[in-house]
Write a protein that binds this DNA or RNA. Structure first.
Lengths: 119, 119
DNA sequence: ATCGTTTATCGTAGATGTACGATAATAAGG
DNA sequence: CCTTATTATCGTACATCTACGATAAACGAT
């Protein structure tokens, strides 16, 4: 039985896993995630998705409509955010429902602390 | 009377100032600082400077020696870090003593929280 | 003044980023 | 099957990034 509202659950990350990464891996991962945030449009997208209530799905089209960019440009930004590990998309019929990777902000915060301080 | 050890003090930032920024300004600033960290070499430089003891100065040449890059390439990364607000340099004779902007990590952490959550 | 040290800047080449319109791909509905 | 809706990808143009060697600029010391 298919639910009426499609909520995006998917993958999540755990800040505790950071301790197992090598210092070198930490730096690379931090640089990668930072690249994801290195454009105001992408900050806005992550912000949007991070503040969505769980029961409210966020479809690609909603994101496009909320931004003053062409659909193809938004799609490119979404791709960067997916590749750098900030968001994930679940296909729902002809649509794609996007959400942030679970706990990614806390993960990023922990990664900064571990990468910039310590050792 | 000139001190024997040259310590880099300079500017600092206060996370409390973030509350005064507009949301739009927050996003731009976060994107900018993120761009600074968006390369492993620059993460390493910030890490080096952030972990230096106060009495130990960090001259440009030390940074160059610690990295497997040409001097001109390191200089470019330092420029990016300066422009994005992570570090500052003080001229000391023929040398330049670099250090992080005071409290910049805490500022960045606070900026992430304010920009991605809230409102 | 000249020299050596240190750092920034220039010039260049190749890769990547950013924006757009056009087109392809996928799925639902008739 | 054909159309519509939705999203990804392609092709393109221009800007920015990243690396290097070469050169310039600033300063201390001889």
């Amino acid at each position: 039985m298919k639910p009426v509202t499609f909520t995006c659950k998917g993958n999540s990350v755990d800040p505790n896993e950071i301790g197992q990464l090598s210092v070198e891996a930490c730096k690379k991962r931090l640089a990668e995630l930072s690249k994801g945030l290195a454009h105001p449009t992408r900050v806005e997208i992550v912000r949007m998705l991070e503040n969505k209530p769980l029961e409210e799905r966020c479809v690609c089209g909603d994101i496009v409509n909320a931004l003053p960019l062409a659909q193809s440009s938004v799609s490119q930004h979404l791709k960067v955010l997916k590749e750098t590990g900030w968001i994930q998309g679940e296909i729902d019929g002809p649509r794609v429902c996007y959400c942030t990777v679970g706990g990614i902000m806390e993960y990023y915060l922990a990664l900064i602390k571990r990468s910039l301080k310590g050792e």
